[in-house]
Amino acid sequence: MIKKGINFVLNLVMSVLVLGLICVLLISSTAFRKEYIKEKMRENHFYDRTYSDIKEDFENYTMQSGLELEILDGLFTKEKVEKDINSKIDAIYGGKKAKIETDSIKSELDSRINLALEEKNRVPSEDEKKSIQKYEEVIVDCYQSGILYGRDFSISSKYLGLAKNICITAIIVISILLLIINRSILKYISFIGINLLFSGILCASIKFLLEKRVQHILILDAKFSNLLVNCLNDCIEKFYHFGIIAAILGVILIVLGSLEKIKKTIENEIN
């Protein structure tokens, strides 16, 4: 009875640790991996949409400035936007602060404005010079805030690594304890089967709990929301598929482990 109780508790703890390890591994391979994020951005045309949004913001400020929209033609490229977004992502995952280069935009804009005023034979007043300077600063700010919303933060996978190591160590320790207590590989296999079935059920049920709720998330703007929803759906699918596989594998191992019972019965019959 005490042995059954100890088995129950140790196996429950190991089940939770296995679930935790699965979650850590799945999250490490998705949200905490910058290549995954970049790939999702490409799939969702995030770079193209950012380019369009920045261009639109530039045009809106220019429409209020007395300058023609042609002044913005080719001022920045899609490739620059993608490069800057990627460097920002590298900085986020590397724990550093990204520096977005905008001097080229400002100097090019300044020379184009001077040329436009020369063509109109217009000599700007002191106030207009200040307004023009302010306009250039606004355009540069617009570009910087357009690159991942101008936010600086970092994502560290240090704690995930620590959690993974703790889970693996604890699983090994409990496995050794279970083997010592039960002295049976087949019984241990059935315990692993229970762990996998437990994890599989919980991972698969995440889909039913969260899938409908995350479809209409709206944060910041449509392009970010689409990216977030896409990533969440992908993670939920990964959890679901893993859950199904783990549950099936768990049942198989439980069946294998149940042979322990047969082995005992046969040994008793022989004796």
């Binding site: 400020y61 209020q64 400035s65 007395g66 300058l67 404005i113 005023l117 217009r122 700007p124 106030d127 207009e128 010079k129 200040k130 307004s131 023009i132 300077q133 302010k134 306009y135 600063e137 606004v138």
Partner: peptide, 9 residues
């Protein structure tokens, strides 16, 4: 101003 240049406040 509507006929000026630059960022209007």
């Amino acid at each position: 101003p509507t006929d000026g240049f630059g960022h209007a406040v």
